[in-house]
Design a protein around this nucleic acid. Structure first.
Length: 210
DNA sequence: GGATGGATTGGCT
DNA sequence: GCCAATCCATCCA
């Protein structure tokens, strides 16, 4: 495990091409600042093990396909470095990071991760106890489970990827092996369902199902 | 104003 | 493997 310094990724890091951002995010640390009921400040750190790229107007699976521009998708047209969160199936919040240039409506979906050892020390006893009831207490294999654990919802929509938003990304020098897979849950998207735009930490146990 | 269905998950057959 | 849960963005009238 890396020990030295972690650096906070600046919003400009996310303005690079979406597929590069999606691949580079595997192994990075998604940080979430939370205030406990007793007023204690905690930071959960979840290392990202799986992402998906949604690459804009020519991607049938992307919300901004064909240049669709609505109240919900408006944020995708921003320059990379802000959050796009939406509710799916009326149940689960999906966490996306807007990537690429302005007017290039692309994003990266965070699909899976696992809490770092650092988080174990910081998590309060109540949360630890609830985690222990899970079969894999530190692994969050699926985008809905991940946002639930990090208490992320649409309040984050449009905010910058920065500690000021209480959600940010750190790089501590971890470079895991990355493999490509087709994306999940987009069978409606024709040929695009087979595009290799899902990036996984090769053979990691915390990956989402399929 | 009404209908439709989804970048998912967990529970039951 | 099947299906309900449960909201709301989006589309159509």
């Amino acid at each position: 495990m890396s020990t030295a310094s972690s650096t906070v990724l600046e919003p400009s890091w996310f303005t690079r091409p979406t597929c590069v951002v999606a691949a580079d995010l595997v192994g990075k640390v998604l940080c979430r600042k939370l205030i406990d009921t007793d007023g204690t400040v905690k930071v959960l750190r979840m290392r990202i093990s799986e992402t998906e790229a949604y690459i804009g107007q020519d991607d049938p699976a992307c919300h901004s396909h064909a240049g669709t521009r609505t109240a919900r998708t408006e944020i995708m047209y921003e320059q990379g470095g802000v959050f796009y969160v939406y509710l799916t199936y009326g149940v689960h919040h999906m966490l996306n990071l807007i990537s690429g240039a302005a007017e290039s409506p692309e994003s990266v979906l965070i699909r899976a991760g696992f809490l770092t050892e650092d988080s174990d020390r910081l998590v309060d006893e109540q949360l630890l106890n609830s985690d222990k009831q899970l079969s894999h207490p530190k692994q969050f294999a699926g985008p809905g489970k991940l946002t639930k654990r990090l208490q992320i919802d649409r309040d984050l929509y449009g905010k910058p990827i920065s500690p000021s938003s209480e959600v940010w990304i750190e790089d501590d020098g971890c470079h895991p092996p990355v493999s490509l897979r087709p994306r999940i849950g987009i069978d409606y998207a024709g040929d695009a369902k087979d595009w290799l735009l899902r990036y996984i930490w090769t053979d990691h146990p915390s990956l989402s199902k399929k």
